[in-house]
Write a protein that binds this DNA or RNA. Sequence first.
DNA 1: GGTGAAAGCGAGGACCA
DNA 2: TGGTCCTCGCTTTCACC
Lengths: 159, 159
Amino acid sequence: MQSKNFDRTDMEILAALQGNGRLSSAELAERVSLTPSPCWRRVKRLEDEGVIRGYRTEIDVRKLGFNVTAFVLISLDQKAAERVKAFEDAVKRVPEVLSCHCVSGRYDHQLTVIARDLDAFGELTRYVLGALPGVKEVYTSFVLKEVKGSGHAISLPAE
Amino acid sequence: MQSKNFDRTDMEILAALQGNGRLSSAELAERVSLTPSPCWRRVKRLEDEGVIRGYRTEIDVRKLGFNVTAFVLISLDQKAAERVKAFEDAVKRVPEVLSCHCVSGRYDHQLTVIARDLDAFGELTRYVLGALPGVKEVYTSFVLKEVKGSGHAISLPAE
DNA sequence: GGTGAAAGCGAGGACCA
DNA sequence: TGGTCCTCGCTTTCACC
């Protein structure tokens, strides 16, 4: 829990790696004007310190037939810790829920959900999400278009 | 742009690759009970067909000192196409905006935004986001906790 | 941070079942 | 389609400037 000791080169490495998580030390080194060894050492350090949480493959869910993506906002009937935990544990087990964040504001949780079509989405909210423990209110906001991708974070806002 | 022709093995490959985007064909093959070659061929196909959109590195922005993450909902004063485009082009250039989706419902766009602290976030919404072309209303929902990660999509909801 | 080098392994093709 | 070599090239990783 700190933000120490990350210089411009580290940020460049992270930016490059974010765009392509499979860059080798050699390729990476070239992009940030270094040689493979020190570059590799930096990456290792970033991994060890947890700045790099992991390497993921980005999947186009629409190509898999999931044509509906929505942000689903949920408020719970009780905010007591154990009640909330029951909901959160349950939501983790729903595969159609890609992510879930506890948020401030009008609702308690925001989920990112996918479904094959509107029918499937309807069933999902009604019989699965609506039935999760403690759910009081459900608000849906469908994703109409991705304007800026989830894949290009950090273009050096630091410094 | 279809869903067809992806069997259980393909889904297993995608699931494995999502958890670790750096798996080699050999490691991957082992996890899905195959040998490297056919496994590699499947991955290649998934890449070619665009199911695999790319390989990314997941970064812990808090470790970089970005302690505030928020979903920012925005509604525009006009919904005319060129007006919307002006906003979207501008939002893409703001590095603190990690993602931006056009959504249905009370607001037009949902952004994911990071900032070093609340002060910085305040400045950002007031002077940067609030000043983007066409912005009429801004609603902020702070992320209090990540319950289910953005990194574990697709645990085989298909089939 | 840079260099050099050793050992290893990973990609990708040819070919068969 | 899956399986088995095979092989070249590159990557990793270390010891030393």
